[in-house]
Design a protein around this nucleic acid. Sequence first.
DNA 1: ATTGGCAGTCGTACCCATTGAGTGCTAACG
DNA 2: CGTTAGCACTCAATGGGTACGACTGCCAAT
Lengths: 340, 340
Amino acid sequence: MIPERSLEVLRAIVHDYIETSQPVGSKSLVERHSFGVSSATIRNEMALLEDEQLIIAPHTSSGRVPTDKGYRLFVDRLGEVKPLSLPERTAIETFMQGSADLDEILGRTVRLLAQLTNQVAMVQYPSLEKGHVKSVELIKVAENQLILLLITDISRVQQHLIQFASAIDEDFVATLRAKLIGTLTGASLSQVVTKLKDFTSQFAPNRETNVQLVLDTLLEQVDANRQDKVILAGTANLAKNEDDFKGSISPMLEAIEEQVVLLRLIQEMQSEENGVALRIGSENALSEFSSSTVVMSGYEKEGFEVAKLGVLGPTRMHYSENIAAVRAVARYLTQTLGGL
Amino acid sequence: MIPERSLEVLRAIVHDYIETSQPVGSKSLVERHSFGVSSATIRNEMALLEDEQLIIAPHTSSGRVPTDKGYRLFVDRLGEVKPLSLPERTAIETFMQGSADLDEILGRTVRLLAQLTNQVAMVQYPSLEKGHVKSVELIKVAENQLILLLITDISRVQQHLIQFASAIDEDFVATLRAKLIGTLTGASLSQVVTKLKDFTSQFAPNRETNVQLVLDTLLEQVDANRQDKVILAGTANLAKNEDDFKGSISPMLEAIEEQVVLLRLIQEMQSEENGVALRIGSENALSEFSSSTVVMSGYEKEGFEVAKLGVLGPTRMHYSENIAAVRAVARYLTQTLGGL
DNA sequence: ATTGGCAGTCGTACCCATTGAGTGCTAACG
DNA sequence: CGTTAGCACTCAATGGGTACGACTGCCAAT
């Protein structure tokens, strides 16, 4: 429905605006790109694009700027994804090398992504929910203290200290551990609650309080991690791009510092056809991000998407490059996790 | 050496400047404070203070602004520490309530401090260095994987996954664990290296590679944590106070995001007489922070200072309040840790 | 459909005069 | 001798006025 050349003009406008950060006018457009037509013709095209709300003029006598809708059309129809450059590829390889620990891997990943894109990078921890119990451990560290370990198959170990009212004996700990392992090993985390239903009744009444305490901690741990964790890097890039954000960046910093908010933002982004999800400007549910774009992709462990990662930046960002980077890093992370 | 009234004037200037963020002139000074003298006299005093480099005029015909040296004199000699308000006290109490886990306690602490001061808050994790080994655990999670746990008396549990080339048998794990516990329990962390010196020789030659792998991981863990960890909150406050920082805030965000830099900053701050250490503006070693003030205090576990916490803000900050808040939060944290 | 031309709009930059807060100095005062 | 009033001076900030220039939108010609 929208003629081919109009789309070309839109692409050129988005491109130039991203380059120069200045509203782009018809004249500079014909200079920088070789359309075979004069600026007057381009002006007609631009008037058309403005009718479609794809571009807008900040004030009467200035060039045009893409709207959120314009960017959306750009990424959906016009922006081919640029493959990463060779130095970028090697950067990824070296960055990810020699990590064994999940914390370390994700930490490196998020910094890598921030560096690659010059934006704020986010990596969500794998959801415990989607994992299975590999083992449970109870370790006595003091007369009345145990450490509870929950080991899952997504390389994530949860630990928590349990404080008892009175001293506890080794035998009790040993049987409790054995029974927990017997009951839970192999169970998916969502099954844990039901599996533990009648667990307490296996014990003598005088043990029950202590057993219950352990169970509560265990369940709390499973539950507390339903709302997962996100790590950040490159928040300094927000300040660098400050001019591109309409208001102050302070509410944005507040929002991304608040795990709950950030998780909600991430949660509701479902990947689209090409494996990457975008929210451009006002498409974001939160008003703080109405001049930001979020680019997210899922990453996998053993064939299942366990969490997401991505970047957040101004709507005026290098879409092709950032989408490519997010996708590539997600793939590398999937690959790295597969090796564990 | 500096006459009493001059100091009064300095105090008033600092006070008014912090309030209004405008250079303060002699006239407004006599209006807002009841010196018994005229503005002309104050002008003479101010000329004196300027000779002493305690205040400076941004340009010829404007009021004066405190220099770093001026702030320093202010906090050292003139600023009485304001006790916290009642609502603040109760805020601390409720905020800290019901935490058991170290991660959670420190997480809450740092957010509390950020909220109380409206600055960037930092809390350093207790240094492993200063702790003692409570126990070591080895847990088999797969045919060729162990989790190594290092449990110390500062409520910090270190965990690390060890990947072996081939399968390992339970017996081996059990004896290794027993020997490790025997050798290390009670040792201070700095002793660990020497204690493990001839450890490998206790084992059959064909075991040695695997034993060594475990030991390496263990030592790496002790070592990696020599350079501890710092958590942050309230970075949004940087953006809020942006005008107070001379340059852009982006290099500052970069610096505080970089653990290494931040740790060096914290490390070299030794508490002064009143239990709080300050670095004002150019007193900071790093040029990024040349218009920032850092307020730090140590907190204790079992009578020993295990780490530091504090805030970072513009040199134009509410010194009395912030010093009071940092000190109070450090005390509360010490108290909370004592209860574990 | 495309183009050149032209009037009209508006933001930006610049100049310039005015204002006012604040200083430093000096001479007078108690 | 400290204090004060008075005064000349400085300089950032403000606002009006003007010229400039980058655009657009439209119209008539191609």
